[in-house]
Design a protein around this nucleic acid. Structure first.
Lengths: 215, 215
DNA sequence: GCTAACCCGTACACCGATGTTCGAGTTATC
DNA sequence: GATAACTCGAACATCGGTGTACGGGTTAGC
């Protein structure tokens, strides 16, 4: 199973190369859009819910996404791609201090995560952690690059495994999403909060106090 | 596998005050113990699994825990209580530097979380975040106390909401548990890693560089 | 404007899991 | 040793959700 869906934010072609009809394409798009909305915000979502909310027959839904897992996989993939897109919209200058870049990256990731806050929980429970992690790879790579550059610059610490540092960042971003979801945190305040928490955790202790007048 | 005999929190009496029979008590204990083991490690667990694994009839299981949610609730409660117990085993001296105390607290919490790593995912999915959070309150209080003391001492920063700082700590601890679960992190290395990550994030930037390795 | 692709609703088979009921056997406790 | 508490197995009712089959209607695309 798990026929690999090809890439591209809008797959104009099917797996076998034959082009899809326009209305099918449109349905897929609205399914994904409303699916993200539903799974991203609500707690209990069934395939029937998605179909109804997308204004589409349940059968049609299954025609495009043979199983619930397939749909969820596609949704996560789409969310990740959105995040990639937001991140890449602001190209990173290699000479720029990595902590600054990381700050921007955090804000960008947050923007997408802020919508779709509950998607992660669903995916975690129904797809398993491994697959979810694998889908996060593209973002993880970008993060890894920033961290590595920061280490070369002497801005970030080198006494911890890079993998762990990255995981810690993910963890904090997701925690912020949960807090926002429960209303304990104002979404607008999150980017600054994240910066203020993450940067000191990654900062190289010997160079300088991490407080640094960022911005 | 002995040592299932836990703290005195074992309810010797029923809700209405009438004492329970000894064999019932024993069954409840083993149900909770094996339940923790199963939900803490495996991915898909049914009530039947728990009953069988506990060497108990499914009906008996339902006699003590009327619903799956009830069982999960009890399991979480028990895990939390174990954590409280481990934390309280080492009383905190108010004059002691708070970062040191926090380090110990992290290690203590980790010890319990290391077993039962997957319990959180189950509880999150089936009990909801609100109830899970509420069950974490006892630990959250202890953490809050340490943070507050650290702020008074000038060791911890005061420029962030205390709630968020505490949430961040929780988040990192749970992230470590997930990493250990997936084998990417050696459990033995976790306490040091946590200390090294959490403390700089909470440290007061103006007093001194957090690198000062106390121990 | 013809054809094939696509959509729709209904209906059904299936599945696994949760709870419940019963009557009869065990076992603690006073 | 009598009573009430507890346990057991197996069967049953239920439920919600997933996935499939059919037949007729609609629409895009060449």
């Amino acid at each position: 199973m798990g026929s690999a869906r090809d890439s591209g934010t809008a797959p104009a072609r099917r797996d076998d190369g034959t082009p899809r009809r326009a209305d099918a394409e449109r349905n897929i798009a609205t399914i994904i859009a409303t699916g993200l909305e539903l799974f991203g915000r609500s707690g209990n979502v069934s395939m029937a819910d998605v179909a109804k909310s997308a204004g589409v027959g349940r059968v049609t839904l299954y025609a495009h996404f043979p199983s619930r897992a397939d749909l969820l996989h596609a949704l996560v993939r789409h969310a990740i791609e959105q995040t990639e897109h937001v991140i890449d919209a602001r190209p990173a200058d290699p000479s720029e201090p990595a902590d600054l870049v990381l700050g921007r990256l955090l804000a960008a990731a947050w923007r997408v995560l802020d919508r779709y806050r509950k998607l992660r929980v669903h995916a975690l429970a129904e797809l398993g952690p491994e697959q979810l992690d694998r889908q996060h790879d593209p973002i993880r790579h970008r993060l890894a690059a920033v961290v590595a550059r920061g280490q070369e610059q002497g801005v970030f610490r080198t006494d911890l495994p890079a993998d762990w540092m990255i995981t810690a960042v993910f963890s904090l971003v997701h925690a912020a999403a949960d807090e926002a979801e429960s209303g304990r945190l104002a979404p607008a305040a999150v980017p600054d909060l994240l910066r203020a928490t993450v940067l000191p955790a990654l900062a190289n202790p010997r160079t300088r106090p991490p407080g640094a007048e960022s911005r």
